[in-house]
Amino acid sequence: MHHRQFKRDLGSLLEVFRFIDDFITSHDIAPSVTQHVRLAVDELFTNLVRFQPGSSEEMSISMDAEGDRVIVRMTTQGVEPFDITQVPGPDFDAPLERRDERGLGVYLCRKVMDDVRYEYENQGRTSTVTLVKKFER
């Protein structure tokens, strides 16, 4: 398993991308998967930094390949619950002047992944998001 802790700071994103790229390259997975995994992880990491800034706990990211799937787990302690699987999508039927420039991130994360799961553990205030992406070699 590929695993690392990252400081909860937007400046960590390039390191996160390198971590993802290293895994994809070393597992002989089609490069097209890289951008989708980067996007999904970026959106969730950014949400956490922006909307739950109070905790200094690092984010743990692990990656694994199981059969034809890449599994990414993002775990953070000391956060409030925020179930990304229940966030409504943007209103694409709204006219331009009412299109909201926020709210695209979680939507895109769910669209580019084949499965997104969310768990929250109250005692440690621990959030775990599991991202699943099918791939071809």
Binding site: F17, R38, L39, E43, E97, R99, E101, R102, L104, L108
Partner: peptide, 16 residues
């Protein structure tokens, strides 16, 4: 090479 929703939101705001 890559753009996230942060960039998309800025393009959308500019178009508006």
């Amino acid at each position: 090479e890559y753009i996230s929703s942060a960039g998309l939101g800025i393009l959308l705001a500019t178009q508006k």
